[in-house]
Amino acid sequence: MTCVTKEEIKEYAYKSGIDIVGFASPDCLFKYRDLLKDRYENGLNCNIEENDIEKRINPYILLEDVKSIVSIAVSYNIVYEADLPKSAYGTVSRTAWGIDYHKVLIDLLEKLRDFILSKCNDAKAVLLVDNNPLLERAIAYNAGIGFYGKNNMLINEKYGSYLFLGEMLLNIYFEPDKKVESKCGSCTRCLKACPGKALIGEYKIDANKCLSYATIKKGYLSDETIKKLGTRIYGCDTCQDVCPFNKTAKRVTKDEFIPRGLKPKHDLREILSLDKKKFQEVFGPTSASWRGKNTIIRNAIIASINSNDKNAIEPLKSLLSCENSYLRGYSAYALSILDGENSLPYIEKAYINEKDEAAKEFMKKAIMMIRGEVFEYNER
C-alpha cells in the first residue's frame, strides 16, 4: 500500500486552488523524439526553444529515480472585462494579466509537495513551471489534463485552453491517467484566424510565424511582421479567442490574475515613456517582464504605427536619442509614417549622430520613405 493515494493528492490539490490534476509516466515523452527532430530539421522551432532533444523528453535528467509526473493546470479564464482606454493602446495577452503565473503555480506546487512529503518521508520531488525544456503540454496531455487542439494548445472540455501548466516529478509510482483524444472534429476556426499564418496545418505550427513569439523576439522585425502585429504589446490570444471550447469554458474568480498596474489595453504613451523604475512598477509583477523593457517599448512603437497614434509623436522624438540603438531606429521609422516631413529634421540629425549600423540603416529607410524614394531591403 502506497503512503499516499492519487485520490488524496487530487483532493488536496483541488482544495488548495488547483483546477485540474493528472498523472503521467516519466517515459511518456520519449515517443516525441522523431517529431522534435523533424521540427528542427524543417526550421519550425524558434530560437528560444531548447535544441537538445534529450533535455526536452528525458525527465530522468532532472530526477534520476523519477517514477511519476504529477501534472497540474490552473485556469486563468477570469471573470473580468477590460476597460477601453480613451487614448491609443497596446494589447496584452491574458497570460500576463495579474501576478506572474510562475510564482502562483510554484506556490501551489510547493504546498502540494509539502502535503505529499508529510505522508511520504522518503519522497523526492522536483517542481517545474516553465523553468525547464521538458515538453509541458505533452506531459499534461499524457496525464489526461486535456486534448491537443488543432492550434497545438491543450484544451480541457470544462476549462477550455486558458490554462497555466505545472509539473512535479516524483520518485513514487502512480498509475498514469488516461489520455483524452481530440474533440476538434471538423472545426478549423483557429487555423483560419491565426494572424501570423503560423498554423501551417492541423496540429502543426511554425513557431517563427507566431505573433506571440514575435512580441518577445529581440531586435528588428520584418515589415510584414510589423503590419501583422497590430497593437500587440505582449503575446497573442487569437487562436484561443475563436475556439468554441473557450466560448463555453468555465470562468473562474482568481484575484491573482486580476490586472493591476499593467492593463489588458494599456496606454501607448505610457509604455513609450517607460524608464527602468516605471517598467518594474507596471510590468515587473507580471509574466510580461521577462523579455525586458526595450522589447516592450519596441512593440509599443509598432502599435503606435498600426493605430496611427499621432499622440505618440513627441515620445517617439525623445526615443531618437535613447540608449538603445534599435529603439532609435524604430522611432525614426515610426515618425516617418506618423509625422512625415515634420519629423524629417529630427530623423536626419539622429542619422548623422548614429553609430550603430543597423539603426542607421533603419533611419535611412525612414528618410527615403519621407522623400518618396524606394528602399528595397525590408528585413530588419
Rank of each mutant, 00 (worst) to 15 (best):
D65H: 07
V66E: 04
V66M: 06
K67Q: 15
S68Y: 04
S68Q: 13
I69A: 02
I69N: 00
V70F: 03
S71K: 02
I72R: 01
A73I: 06
A73S: 15
V74Q: 00
Y76K: 07
N77H: 15
I78C: 11
V79D: 15
Y80G: 03
Y80Q: 08
Y80T: 08
Y80D: 11
D83Q: 14
A88W: 00
V92K: 01
V92H: 02
R94H: 14
W97L: 07
G98P: 00
G98W: 00
D100S: 03
D100P: 06
D100E: 11
D100Y: 05
D100G: 09
H102M: 11
I106V: 13
I106H: 12
I106L: 15
D107V: 08
L108W: 01
E110D: 14
L112T: 09
R113Y: 06
D114S: 12
F115Q: 05
I116L: 03
I116N: 00
S118M: 10
S118F: 07
N121H: 14
D122N: 15
D122K: 14
A123V: 15
K124G: 07
A125D: 09
A125E: 10
A125N: 10
V126E: 13
V126H: 09
L127W: 10
V129K: 00
N131L: 08
L134A: 04
L134M: 05
L135D: 09
R137I: 09
Y141P: 01
N142F: 08
G144Y: 02
I145Y: 01
G146F: 02
F147P: 06
N152S: 15
M153Q: 12
M153R: 08
L154Q: 04
I155W: 02
I155R: 02
N156Q: 10
N156I: 06
K158N: 12
K158I: 14
K158P: 07
Y159A: 04
Y159I: 10
G160K: 01
L163F: 09
G166C: 06
E167R: 05
E167A: 08
L169T: 01
L170H: 05
L170M: 12
Y173V: 04
E175Q: 14
D177W: 02
K179Q: 15
V180S: 10
K183M: 14
C184H: 00
C190E: 06
L191Q: 09
P195R: 05
A198E: 01
A198S: 09
L199C: 08
I200K: 05
G201F: 01
Y203L: 10
I205C: 11
I205N: 00
K209S: 06
